[in-house]
Amino acid sequence: MTERMGFFTDTSVCIGCKACEVACKTWNDIPADGVDLLGMSYDNTGSLDANTWRHVAFIEQTVQDDTRWLMSSDVCKHCTEAGCLDVCPTGALFRTEFDTVVVQADICNGCGYCVPACPFGVIDRREDDGRAWKCTMCYDRIGDGLMPACATACPTESIQYGPLDELRERADERLAELHSRGQADARLYGHSPDDGVGGAGAFFLLLDEPEVYGLPSNPVVTTRDLPAMWKRAGLAAVAVAAGVAVSFLGRR
């Protein structure tokens, strides 16, 4: 295993240029999804899905009679405890030597189980192709020592790629810097290994509540409760066996 690699997306310097979206689409040869004017500020992408692996969110806020723009490039979190990977029945989803989570397109049979298992709503099934797709953290680039396409294209270093430990340190420094400048609403999201997904491989510096950006405030991987679920299902199965047996015990 090589070092764990990750993304640190510092939204405080995002300028909403969408170069990350374009670079991602181009490098990964992702199908176009048409021109769609959504009426969501400058966001005409909408959300992460099978054909969008980087999504720039635009939030317009009125603060003291002035407009504040929040822009944030969202991406797959590459969770330490990844629900999509856990529930995948074919083994198509796997953990790479960089500790990222990747779908093997030649294995995926399109069962769709990963889609509702993701607490962030990232992974999605492509309609015409039938398989599940999401960010690979440019698995085909980082193996050759290149940076992922989005981080390479980002003109403001809002998207930073590197060893996760280094990124976490850098994020702590950046947060302290912003706080010392009086930006009290700055916060890190997904950086803590103690959170509900064991920490994200792609984490963020946000300037407002996670919900404002369309992120869950307290995501928990569904499989944490799986042992309890199997126990309950086992008990219920015993109830079926007992119920059938009892039905055949009495009079004819």
């Binding site: 959504l38 969501m40 966001d43 909408g46 959300s47 899905d49 969110a57 939030i59 889609v115 509702p116 993701c118 607490p119 962030f120 709503g121 992974i123 999605d124 919900e211 404002v212 950006y213 369309g214 992120l215 869950p216």
Partner: peptide
């Protein structure tokens, strides 16, 4: 939330 969009798919 973000333009009233659900988070989970």
């Amino acid at each position: 939330g973000y333009y009233g969009r659900p988070i989970v798919k």
